[in-house]
Nucleic acid binder design. Structure first.
Lengths: 252, 252
DNA sequence: ATCCTCGCTATCATTGAGTGATAGTTAATC
DNA sequence: GATTAACTATCACTCAATGATAGCGAGGAT
């Protein structure tokens, strides 16, 4: 339940404050002080001091139902969007990509053991389900795999250890052998084609953005549904996708 | 330069981490470690530990030019937008308000000694200048005054002491007597009409959202320009504005 | 009325986590 | 190849964070 730095011992205070913030991020409604304390496994007194400080600074707000994230979250995001090189460079390129393909395109980056959607441009055919900016999504599900492909065996094992197997939209679990096989395919092809992984009927084509030094700094995604397109037709758009990735890598 | 908790001594560690975050929020580009240290007045070693921790957690990212805010800012904002009662309740009401008036409407809340734009709906006549969601704006400039109107003399003095006089778009300073007079007008009229305060040629009509207990939880804003509307015509929209505020207060 | 429970706040002795001075490393620049 | 810049690592000291406990106020139940 907790992001739990466990009993670890360095940077404890700040780490705990971030745990509190993220417990509110995950919550689907206001939390009581005691609920926060429980979810991050902190003493009530410690939680109280931390929460009150974050309230004073606007990171948390309180109403009669409890505590939730405060408006400063918006300020940070606003500043991020203004300054972030990758998202400012990528947005117009996603615009072209969506214009030429007619599909929704998006870009995401790795953050810890998840990925975060950083920018999105909707295509002509709007999607039924939402994929909103800022959302945290598993790395080992759908297009996230292109960001795992470069991990060596030890790092991948450690990753699997930390996050466990992903559950597909079908309900099936994706074990580590499945994942390893798909990562090999990604390495061979340079892209990932996802069919009903995150969402039933969803179809996505994803490619990593590599710098000159082969480091993946993010990935670009084309999303559609089986109703609109066939897998083969989507893969046929790979050159467009690759061009967008190259253009972003060049300008970032 | 620093948000400086000064030499104060409680919650120091977390407060310093937030200072670091907000120094990057204010920065108009990547900052070097030493620049962060200077701007928040911290020892380099302390800054380094803090920054590295925030990098590990995704709140800060590093590139060859230095440090800037990380993508987790987006995740927090995403969660805020999903959960915040006020903004979810207000958005459709702003939609109606903008539809009937044809103007851009927005809602902001107080956060510390500033206000933060929480939601906005554009009108038929798009504005030349941007007023983006998440932006921090002075409380003592433009519509922000409706959130200061209920302060007693001592609190207002303390506020003026902390933030100093606002500078109007004309370049003139607004001293504490100016401010006090305008706050009295706000109390009498129940709204504030701003003419070229934040931006030359801008015209805005603002009203606070009061709960049953008379507490102001935010404010609603109608913005236009002198080219499109006269002050009198804008004030004539006050009933619409008041209705929106009442509707929000009722449902929040 | 009286007794609980719940949600939050306040106090305070203990101690170990954060601090900051210093030295080290890497990489670029002249 | 010397010099600067940017960041990292180490470590003894001490002060700030900690957590146990007590307190307060509001709302319900008996």
């Amino acid at each position: 339940m907790s992001t739990a730095t466990g009993g670890s011992n360095q940077g404890r205070t700040i780490e705990r404050a971030l745990d509190v913030l993220e417990s509110l991020e995950r919550a689907r409604g206001p939390l009581r002080l005691s609920e926060i304390a429980r979810s991050v496994d902190l003493h009530l007194a410690t939680t109280q001091r931390t929460v009150n400080l974050l309230v004073r600074r606007g990171y948390i707000q309180q109403d009669r139902h409890g505590y939730s994230l405060g408006p400063v979250a918006l300020s940070l995001a606003h500043a991020f969007v203004l300054n972030d090189r990758l998202s400012t460079v990528a947005t117009p390129i996603l615009g072209e990509l969506s214009a030429t393909t007619g599909l929704t395109s998006s870009i995401f980056v790795r953050s810890g053991d998840e990925r975060i959607l950083v920018a999105r441009v909707d295509g002509a055919n709007p999607l039924r389900y939402q994929f909103p900016i800022g959302r945290r999504v598993p790395l080992n599900l759908g297009g996230g795999k292109v960001l795992l492909a470069d991990l060596d065996a030890a790092d991948l094992d450690a990753f699997n250890e930390r996050v466990g197997p992903a559950r597909l939209a079908s309900g099936a679990l994706q074990d580590s052998a499945d994942l390893a096989a798909q990562l090999a395919t990604v390495r061979r092809n340079g892209f990932h084609l996802a069919q009903s992984e995150r969402e039933l009927g969803a179809l996505s084509l994803t490619r990593a953005i590599h710098t000159e030094s082969r480091e993946a700094i993010g990935a670009v995604n084309l999303v559609t549904t089986t109703e609109h397109t066939t897998p083969d037709a989507l893969v046929a758009l790979l050159p467009e996708l690759a061009r967008a990735c190259a253009a972003i890598a060049e300008r970032v």
